[in-house]
Amino acid sequence: HNLTITQGKLFFHYNPKLCLSEIHKMEEVSGTKGRQERNDIALKTNGDQASCENELLKFSYIRTSFDKILLRWEPYWPPDFRDLLGFMLFYKEAPYQNVTEFDGQDACGSNSWTVVDIDPPLRSNDPKSQNHPGWLMRGLKPWTQYAIFVKTLVTFSDERRTYGAKSDIIYVQTDATNPSVPLDPISVSNSSSQIILKWKPPSDPNGNITHYLVFWERQAEDSELFELDYCLKGLKLPSRTWSPPFESEDSQKHNQSEYEDSAGECCSCPKTDSQILKELEESSFRKTFEDYLHNVVFVPRKTSSGTGAEDPRPSRKRRSLGDVGNVTVAVPTVAAFPNTSSTSVPTSPEEHRPFEKVVNKESLVISGLRHFTGYRIELQACNQDTPEERCSVAAYVSARTMPEAKADDIVGPVTHEIFENNVVHLMWQEPKEPNGLIVLYEVSYRRYGDEELHLCVSRKHFALERGCRLRGLSPGNYSVRIRATSLAGNGSWTEPTYFYVTDYLDVPSNIA
């Protein structure tokens, strides 16, 4: 807008934040220059609390790290170098490059900038070799853009010569660093050979998330399962459950009422301010606690030095998902009996873990797994792929695949051998790939016309006998059925096997 004052003059007093240069501009645009008398524009009460600059400061050096910015700028000295009290560095987070010096300023003089007072450097006698002032900004957020400017702080001049310097606002972004852990990993099994893994992005990506790394490792069953005799009275049979499938998407929606109208769909109840505040506090606490764990609990591995020492970490090797089922080394339970199943799973520490690289999504279907087997899954978020990966501390989750139908069934015939004193040795093959492992066998036998009897055969007993022995049988026709019990439950009964026990007292003698 054009402003013209045809008559009258300007009068400025007691404006401590208004620089004289701005008042002189007002004289020019209003056409009143030359009308004012000496005392109409006070030299001592206008701009006496402001830094009124008329020179431009330029930054000469900028260096960044993930949490620091090192700045240096060209030296500046007023005509009387004693008038320079120091520099004021202003900075704040700036997602967009549209910041002005006066953003967030209120009537009390406060604003949204963080201000650092910096002492002037030592003055050199040689004007050509003056030290460049600077400042190291610490405690910054990774991968965050900051708006920065600097200006001088000078003393009051009796001659009211307006001098000083100020830089333009520059924008500097800190470097990326390792992201925080992925949030809320959930693993479920939808079949006997697959596990579905879902997660949420890290709360602090500290860069642009480029991919996720998912490692999985087959877990050995508890050692007590191999040692305890679950045929003993009072000892509860062990059981394991597989990871249940995901709930429906509708039930997972946030901010939804727990109660549904019987007449149909209901609208979600909005969260109160107290609920939102509580969630923010919980989120802040979780982030602080995660940072504490990362800094205190997890110790970084030592990389190899120039002395030739090897990095103890196993090298990563990509495998196809079809090879995942046989990740671990199978060892027989008892070496003397080769027909026992290889369900003991000690994992070799030198073995390469299978892994998958996930790009542009937060889910993965891990296939080719062994049925009813526990897996430990390790999830890392990465925001750099080359020249070397920059990934987060791992988040861990466990899951067990679903049982395989008929995996616990005894394959092959049940054979028998009759000894003296009416002892019958029953023999059968253990299931080759049971659900988890076989903890015991149930032997059901009966003599024709009598009630059915049951015998429990422990895992250890089966390994020693290759089956079991029935003792003290009365003469007669017998039928026997056997079924295995694994961590997933009972298998199917075998087809009945028949044998006849004679009275050993009636056996004919070869003595003449």
Rank of each mutant, 00 (worst) to 15 (best):
L379N: 02
H461I: 13
S268N: 14
F355V: 11
G374S: 07
V443M: 05
E356K: 13
T502N: 11
L464R: 13
V327Q: 13
I276R: 05
V397L: 14
E249H: 08
K406S: 10
S304M: 15
P387M: 12
D222G: 07
H371D: 01
L321N: 13
S458R: 07
S305L: 07
T272H: 13
G368Q: 08
S344D: 04
L232T: 14
Y500C: 13
L437C: 11
M427V: 07
V424N: 00
A381M: 01
S392M: 02
E227I: 11
Y500P: 03
L293P: 03
I377A: 09
E247D: 05
K233P: 15
C468M: 12
Y498S: 10
T307V: 07
F298E: 08
V393E: 15
K317I: 10
T386E: 12
L437Q: 11
H416C: 10
G374V: 08
G207S: 05
S239V: 05
P205D: 15
A463M: 10
V439F: 09
L487G: 02
K271P: 05
E227K: 08
S274T: 08
T288H: 05
Y396M: 14
S479W: 07
Y375I: 07
N360R: 13
E221F: 10
G264F: 04
I366D: 00
L464D: 14
I418K: 06
A381V: 05
R469V: 09
G412M: 14
K233A: 15
V297Y: 12
S320V: 10
L470K: 01
V424M: 05
S257M: 06
S251W: 03
R313P: 13
S305G: 07
N477H: 07
K406E: 14
L228S: 10
R319A: 08
R481S: 05
R286E: 14
T373H: 09
N360L: 06
T333F: 05
S344H: 12
D261K: 08
V457F: 09
P332G: 08
E388P: 08
V443K: 00
F215G: 14
N490L: 07
F462R: 06
H454R: 11
S203F: 07
F289S: 07
G491S: 09
I418R: 06
N477I: 05
R400V: 10
F289N: 07
Y375C: 02
V393P: 01
D222H: 15
G412H: 04
T386W: 12
V214L: 08
A220K: 06
A394Y: 14
G374A: 04
E362M: 08
D291H: 12
Q429L: 10
L455A: 12
E433T: 08
P338N: 05
L235F: 07
F462D: 01
A395M: 08
K432W: 10
D323Y: 14
S363R: 04
D408P: 00
H211Q: 06
H352L: 07
C468A: 06
R316A: 14
T333A: 15
